[in-house]
């Protein structure tokens, strides 16, 4: 029997649907069975699926690694910031410790001097110009006045030449205008220690007969009343007898390293010296 053309499609559809429904019903009854066609499709599809999944896993892993590295980068930046902050903190503690050590040395000097003393911080140092001066952060408000001696833990720094309410200018002992009564510790020979600029100081008016040697310690004599007696001024670095002269030419290196000076002490005698 040949069907008319217009019914062929409908018939084919019904037949196909019935066949597929039968297959479905049959397979539902026997779930465990895998037909040869299904096996073949699975055999073909499995390696393709495997390859795709492996590629996806690779991409996924790469992405995870990227995220991990991004996370590590953030962590690294955070740790670097923390490290910088901690270093800053450590530096401030270290500075505080060193400052404490320096101030302790100044306090020792203060105890030795038996005077009321004011500790000051060096806020400016003018060592390169013609006048060798320092600026300190204490002034008349704290009892400072012109002419007072200024010392550090290493020795004498100089004397105050200008004061304002909260700052003072100090003439360093290496300035050419600085003259301090001094004596050589070993021989007790007395002279005047005059500043010689960057070269250090010269000890003047020491007779030629005096046995002065390199390395001799020079102290303040306390004669003029400005500097207390016995403060360290410097060390003799060289001597030469001027031909035909009465006195020796003695080079003295200052005991204070002015380039590293941060705190100073100003002893204030009860009856202060006149400027």
């Amino acid at each position: 029997m040949i069907l008319p053309k217009k019914y062929r499609a409908i018939t084919a559809a019904i037949v196909l649907l019935l066949v597929s429904l039968s297959i479905l019903a049959y397979s539902a009854a026997r779930l465990s069975e895998t037909g040869p066609l299904r096996k073949m499709v699975l055999e073909i599809a499995a390696p393709v699926e495997d390859a795709i999944n492996l590629s996806l896993k690779g991409l996924h892993d790469a992405w995870n690694r990227y995220l991990f590295l991004v996370g590590k980068g953030d962590e690294s930046r955070r740790l670097r910031r923390e490290n910088a902050a901690l270093n800053e903190l450590l530096n401030s503690y270290r500075e505080g410790f060193l400052e404490g050590m320096r101030l302790r040395k100044l306090l020792d000097i203060k105890d030795r001097l038996h005077h009321r003393a004011v500790a000051a911080r060096v806020i400016d140092s003018d060592r390169t110009s013609l006048f060798k001066t320092l600026l300190i952060n204490k002034g008349t408000t704290e009892g400072l006045r012109v002419g007072l001696p200024v010392v550090a833990d290493q020795g004498v720094v100089g004397r105050i030449i200008e004061t304002s309410w909260h700052a003072s200018r100090v003439l360093m002992l290496i300035d050419e205008n600085s003259n301090i009564d001094a004596l050589i510790q070993r021989t007790r020979a007395q002279g005047i220690l005059q500043g010689a600029g960057s070269a250090g100081c010269n000890l003047k008016y020491i007779p030629r007969e005096e046995n002065v040697q390199t390395g001799d310690v020079v102290l303040s004599s306390g004669l003029a009343g400005v500097f207390p007696k016995g403060l360290l001024l410097g060390v003799v670095t060289g001597t030469s007898g001027q031909e035909g002269g009465l006195f020796l030419k003695i080079d003295v290196a200052s005991a204070v390293d002015f380039s590293k000076l941060e705190e100073v002490l100003i002893p204030i005698p009860d009856a202060g010296p006149k400027p």
Partner: peptide
């Protein structure tokens, strides 16, 4: 039919389910 068959092979627990549904 082919798409249903492949879907049945790779995803379905009931063989013929997608073949029937896709044809429908």
């Amino acid at each position: 039919l082919l798409l249903g068959f492949f879907m049945d092979c790779l995803t379905s627990t009931m063989f013929g389910l997608y073949m029937f549904l896709y044809l429908l």
